[in-house]
Amino acid sequence: MEEIEASGTGMPQLDITTFSNQIFWLVVTLVVLFYIMSRVALPRVAAVLADRRGTITSDIAAAEDYKLRAQEAEAAYNKALADARVEAQSIIDAAKAEMQEELDQQIAKANAEIAAKSSESERRIREIRDSAMEMVTQVSKDATGDIVEAFGVPAEASRIDEAVSARLKGGAA
């Protein structure tokens, strides 16, 4: 505090001889600063801020657009998927029906063949049985004729036939 006493002027703030100087330079400074700020600095910053706001809005709009398009694409994809599924189902059904039809045909054909074959076999079996019967009859008759002749009785073919037939029929019955 000594140096203040020494300077003797008290507070420099109350020294009115310097007021005019300070006021003059303050006014100059404020005018210069105002022109720099309002003409150069603030419009630039405002332009940058407006630019950014514009960019952000347009980016958001673009993002919105992309989102919409993505949703559309997803819907289309889902639709395609559903269509493909339906088509695949119809193809499967058609193939199944075709296969079934063919299978039925084959089965019917096979059944017919089997039936034909079995009837043929039956017919042959019957033939064989018939011929075997015929042969048995013939052999019986021949043997009977031989046996009757061996007894020394003249064999009458018609009677022997009758007798053997009657016997066989009775035996068969």
Binding site: W25, I36, A41, R44, V45
Partner: peptide
Amino acid sequence: VSWYTPTNVTLWMALTVVAASALMI
């Protein structure tokens, strides 16, 4: 110090303008 003399007031006010302009420009 008369009203137009360049003083330390002038210097520091000029530096204020320079600093403010440096930040904003």
